[in-house]
Amino acid sequence: MQDINFHSVIPAIAVPFDDNLAIDRDELARFSRWLAGQPGIGALMTNGHTGEVFSLTPLERAEVTRITAEAVRGICPVISSIVCEGIREAVEQARMAKEAGADALDIMPPHHWLRFGFKPEHCLEYFTAIGDATGLPLIVHVYPAWTRASFSSELLAELARLPAVRAFKIGTREMNKYARDLAAIRAADPSKALLTCHDEYLLASMVQDIDGALVGFASLVPGLIHDLLQAVRAGDLARAIEIQGLITPLKDAVYGAGEPTGEAHGRMKAAMARAGIIRSAAVRPPTQGPSDAELRAIEAALEHAGLLPVAA
């Protein structure tokens, strides 16, 4: 098991599909190696929302982790997200991820919590069971404040005190609560890493004393996100604003006014394909690819950021 530098950029990786919408194993391995070799990358994360996890079967999720881990062995560690509905299923998939080569696990809230909510003890038991079953470091995946799966600041502090928990992927998306959450975790255990996952407002979330970034957008612009994090750490606001100025048109073209989910992943894959990062922009239904107008916006944003391939 490799140690993970959480004070870094960690891309939640996209998964290339072939023309039959099967996992393109060779392309996934090639893309993973390329991404792992970019400056400032501390780990790769499989099976996140950017990886279209809800379109993958449990066996496919383990296979994505296995392909990625084998491809980047000796380059960087691999994290796998776990998205399940109950403890028994979560433990089973967590063990599959570990066997496939995962060095840590990102734990999403069970999705029935989104509708019905949960008690704090449900959450603590869920994380404890996965940690005990695998012995792997855990990342708490924090959902937006407006959802019923949102964790209170008090619960985040309790999670920070769990020995298995090493980091927090914070997607609060409500800046007052975001600040309270960061303060609560720091007070409970300052050794736990705080990672922004606010793809759509990176600079605004980075300047609040975070340690790194765990974002799907780093599948597309790893270098720019690394440069932005370095500028923030150096206290160079002018440079950070300049870099964010390159990112913003791409952010607008991919995410629009919304969050990084659904068709946004199709738009990002289209941008990755146009930039020469992956061969195909194919997405699995019901996710759809971008419209002609969206493709034009993506093209313009890539040109603005200097990310279009140079013609031979």
Rank of each mutant, 00 (worst) to 15 (best):
M1I: 11
Q2F: 15
I4W: 05
N5Q: 12
S8Y: 07
V9Y: 02
I10T: 04
I13W: 03
I13M: 05
P16S: 13
F17P: 03
A22T: 05
D24L: 05
D26V: 06
A29V: 13
A29W: 11
R33A: 05
A36K: 01
G37F: 09
P39R: 02
I41D: 04
A43P: 01
L44F: 06
T46Y: 06
H49L: 10
H49D: 15
G51H: 01
V53F: 08
T57S: 04
E63C: 03
R66L: 11
A69H: 09
A71Q: 01
V72N: 10
P77N: 10
P77G: 07
V78Q: 07
I79N: 01
S80R: 11
S81Q: 10
I82V: 12
E85G: 13
G86N: 09
I87Q: 03
E89Y: 01
V91M: 09
Q93T: 12
Q93A: 08
R95S: 03
K98E: 05
A102E: 00
A104D: 06
L105N: 00
L105R: 02
H112R: 13
L114K: 14
R115P: 11
G117F: 08
F118M: 01
K119A: 13
H122V: 13
A133Q: 00
P137K: 11
I139W: 07
H141A: 04
V142M: 04
P144G: 10
A149C: 14
S150G: 05
E154G: 10
E154P: 10
E158F: 02
A160K: 02
P163S: 01
V165I: 03
K169L: 10
K169T: 06
G171F: 01
G171W: 04
T172F: 06
N176D: 10
D181P: 10
A187T: 08
D189Y: 08
S191N: 04
L194A: 08
T196G: 07
C197A: 15
D199T: 14
D199V: 15
E200T: 15
Y201N: 14
L202R: 06
S205R: 02
V207T: 09
Q208C: 14
I210E: 01
I210M: 00
I210Q: 02
G212D: 02
A213L: 13
G216A: 08
P222K: 09
I225S: 00
A231I: 02
V232T: 03
A234R: 11
E242F: 06
G245I: 03
G245C: 06
L246K: 12
P249Y: 10
P249M: 14
P249T: 09
L250A: 13
V254K: 07
V254W: 07
G262D: 06
G262H: 05
E263T: 14
M268P: 08
K269E: 13
A271P: 14
G276V: 12
I277W: 13
I278S: 04
S280P: 09
S280R: 12
V283W: 05
A293W: 15
A297P: 08
A297H: 13
I298P: 02
E299P: 08
A300C: 15
L302D: 01
A305V: 12
A305G: 11
P309D: 10
